[in-house]
Simulated assay, not measured.
Amino acid sequence: MTGALATALPGLAASIPSPDQHTWYLGPVPVRAYALAILAGIAVAIWITGRRWAARGGDPDDVLEIAFWAVPFGIVGGRLYHVISTPDPYWGPDGDPVRALYVWEGGLGIWGAVALGAVGAWIGCRRLGVRLPAFADALAPGLLVAQAVGRLGNWFNQELFGAPTTLPWGLEISPEVIDHLNRTTGTSFAEGTLFHPTFLYELLWNLAAAAVLVWLDRRYRLGHGRVFWAYVALYTLGRVWIEMLRIDTAEHVLGLRLNVWTSIVVGLGALVAFFLVGRLRPGREDGVELPGRERPAQAEDEDEDTTSTGDAGEDAQAAGPDPGTAARA
């Protein structure tokens, strides 16, 4: 089938090239593609979440305030998880512990990012007086889009690709990276070998999952954290098969990569939480703010003006139509 497709479509590229550069310099300042991808993902997530938060009745400015706490916590958590789950480059025989601090080289584990990012989001929500489950529901689709954009950084870094493949969308990897892979993993891949573009698989999966979340939320008016639990379940479902394709160094437990076990356990837990919350608290929250939150003075003034205008309109209606209007009619 693959050969027939390649023969029928000779004009299409038989592989996906990898970028030959991942860092540019503005004078002495390095600009790294990985960092740009992460920042772009964060910006897109904040924009999407702001719109969804406003649609749920929240203040869009809340999103920036909560991101101020969630993003740094998430980056630290993601790096910690990566270093723990892939320790050889840092603590192995030829490892360098100092490189654990080199976030720009790639390596942010999503589960550590979600776990500590949730702690940061909780702090932000508590300070603002908003409901964390409601905010998590607004965040979930944007988080998937951010992860999709972030995978472009892996493409630029030529990392986290999958096993060799003869498919027409195989990923080209530079000879230097293949040589490093052979030395660190004991493999013997020849120059010119094509690999599964797992960065692309996850990018497309995440975008599709984000669309599914938006549809589920609109169709069933999910609330109380159920959109977030659906996000975790959908993401882990894709991560299991994508992770099984990868050949980079990783810790193994009972013959499977640690990230595979993590995805299975977390995914099953998310499914249980999704259905349990749905049974105990169906529908969507009545409000996104916690009781006792003080609204900004400007908002209170606007409400008073609206109320006054409404009262004046009712008084005018009770007094009868305007004579000029009646004459024009």
Rank of each mutant, 00 (worst) to 15 (best):
H252D: 11
I42P: 09
S85K: 04
L9W: 15
E302A: 12
R295K: 10
H22E: 14
I123P: 01
G324Q: 09
A273Q: 14
A211H: 01
V114N: 09
P72H: 01
M1F: 12
S188H: 14
G225I: 13
P164L: 11
L216R: 10
A233Y: 08
D94I: 01
R32N: 10
G278V: 08
S263W: 08
D286Y: 01
G267N: 11
I123Y: 02
P197K: 08
A100V: 05
R221H: 13
T2M: 03
V214G: 06
F135A: 13
S188E: 15
L80F: 07
H82I: 00
W169K: 04
D301Q: 14
A115W: 13
Y81V: 05
I264H: 01
D137K: 01
P10V: 13
Y34G: 06
L167Q: 09
A209R: 00
L171C: 15
L143T: 12
G225L: 14
W122N: 04
A148E: 08
S85D: 11
A37G: 11
L132T: 10
H82E: 13
W24D: 11
F135R: 07
G107F: 08
L152H: 06
G292M: 03
G106W: 04
R183N: 10
P168D: 03
M1W: 03
D311N: 14
L26Y: 01
G255V: 03
Y90T: 03
M244Q: 09
G120W: 07
I48Y: 04
R226L: 09
G95N: 14
Y201M: 04
W91H: 07
G50L: 07
I16G: 02
T307I: 12
R99K: 15
E251N: 08
L268Y: 01
L237P: 04
G77L: 07
P89W: 07
R218F: 04
A4P: 05
I264P: 01
L245E: 15
V177L: 00
